[in-house]
Amino acid sequence: MTAIISNPLDFNVDDLYVDLCPTIGRRVFLKCEGFNFAGSIKLKAAAEMIAAKERSGDLSPGSTLIESSSGNMGVALSIAAASRGYRFVCVTDSRCNRAARRLMETLGTEVHVITEPDPEGGFLGARLAHVRRLVNSNAGYLWLNQYSNESNWMAHYRTTAPENAKAFPEIDILFVGAGTTGTLMGCAHYFRENLPAVKVVAVDTVGSVSFGRPAGRRLIPGLGTSVRPGILDPSIVDDIVYVSEPDTVRMCHQLSGRGFLFGGSTGTVVSGAATWLETNGIGDDVLSVAISPDFGGNYLETIYDDEWLARSFGSKLLPAELDPAR
Rank of each mutant, 00 (worst) to 15 (best):
C252W: 07
A310P: 01
P319I: 02
D19C: 04
S78P: 15
A82V: 08
Y17K: 04
V243S: 03
A129W: 05
R55S: 11
L317C: 06
A52C: 12
S83D: 13
I240R: 02
I24S: 04
S265D: 11
G263D: 14
G125R: 02
S83I: 13
L255T: 06
P196I: 09
R258E: 15
V269T: 11
P293R: 04
S315A: 14
F313Q: 11
G74N: 10
A51L: 12
M1S: 10
E321D: 15
M251S: 14
R102C: 12
L107A: 04
G121L: 03
R55K: 13
I240S: 01
D247A: 08
I41F: 05
A155W: 04
G57E: 15
A76I: 14
A290C: 13
D204V: 05
I220M: 10
T225G: 02
G121E: 05
E105P: 12
G264H: 09
E33C: 06
S315E: 15
A45E: 10
M185C: 05
G34H: 07
T180Q: 08
G71I: 12
D239I: 03
S60Q: 14
E170H: 14
V243D: 08
A126V: 10
F313Y: 15
P117F: 06
A290T: 11
A47Y: 02
L30E: 06
V270E: 12
L232C: 07
V89T: 09
T205L: 11
H253W: 14
V270Q: 13
S69I: 07
L43A: 04
V201T: 01
A310N: 08
A178F: 06
G182E: 14
D247C: 01
V200P: 00
L77M: 15
H130I: 00
L318E: 05
T279N: 14
V135H: 04
S312H: 07
G212P: 09
C21D: 12
V289G: 08
Y141C: 09
K166D: 09
E48R: 13
P119W: 08
N136F: 00
E301C: 03
G71W: 12
I4G: 00
L317F: 05
S83A: 15
L322D: 12
C90R: 05
R217W: 01
S68R: 02
T159N: 10
E193T: 01
S63A: 15
L174Y: 08
I291H: 09
S56W: 09
L134W: 10
S70L: 11
C187P: 09
I79Q: 09
P8W: 09
A45Q: 03
S244H: 07
L195C: 02
F168S: 06
V269P: 00
I50K: 05
R98N: 10
P293K: 06
L142E: 12
S210G: 01
F191V: 06
T159G: 00
